[in-house]
Amino acid sequence: MTRNTRILMQCIYWAFVLYLLIPLALMMLMGFKDSKFIGFPIRDVTLDWYLAVFQDSQVLNAMGYSAIIGVLSTAIALFMGTWIAVALTGRSFWGRAILLGLTLLPAVIPGVISAIAFRIAARLVGLEPGMWAIIWSHAIHNVPFVVLVVMARLSTLPKSYGEAAQDLGADPIITFFRVTLPYLTPAMIGGGIFCLLLSFDDFVRSFFLGGYEPTLPVLIFAKLRSGMSPEINAISTVVLVLTAVLGLWAERSMRGMKKRAAND
């Protein structure tokens, strides 16, 4: 590549970074505005909007509700995803490709279609809209991501580890818990945090499967529709900080895994 194209690409990269970060930075700034109306310029600043977030019981409830849904759906997705990954890795059998395809299916169904399909299915099994319906739909939607991460990790597990355990008399169940599972832990932590983020951020499934109690994204959506105020900026900023911390943690966990795999 010539020097000019390299500089051009560098410019595109930084322009893209600005496109991604400027809206979020403005959003955070606007949370400090001492006025009820969103919009520039910001003349006076205040911390009231941020302080109000931590006193608003509606916001705190929604946050707790989203957190419970996130944790429980992640637990289910991790359990099923790991089981499926173990069943799919290292052996070939009739129908493996079909099983893998069906496993990844929820990840490729467009959002609104997946949400209404879950809504209809929840009606079929008699699940009322509410917490459990949301947990169930988030868990199903997140399973493919766990499967992909765990399968990638599992494919680097040397076969000799399991064989050594079996030679020492461990049965397959004990081999799984004492050899395979510890080896998979970093992948499961990384995949789990990713699921947590997906669940915490999800709007469309929570919206269609939710009851009267809103999850945090649904609450923000409702507030947005009834009119913008810096209060929403403060809430969104809190969400942004929370998710960024979680995301960085997941990234660190996965990166450590790659480094260790390279050293093995």
Binding site: L21, D201, D202, A244
Partner: peptide
């Protein structure tokens, strides 16, 4: 980092811009 933030928050940021 911006992609870890959910759909709604990102749309809202766009609205402000």
């Amino acid at each position: 980092i911006p992609f870890w933030v959910g759909e709604i928050v990102r749309i809202f940021a766009m609205m402000i811009l």
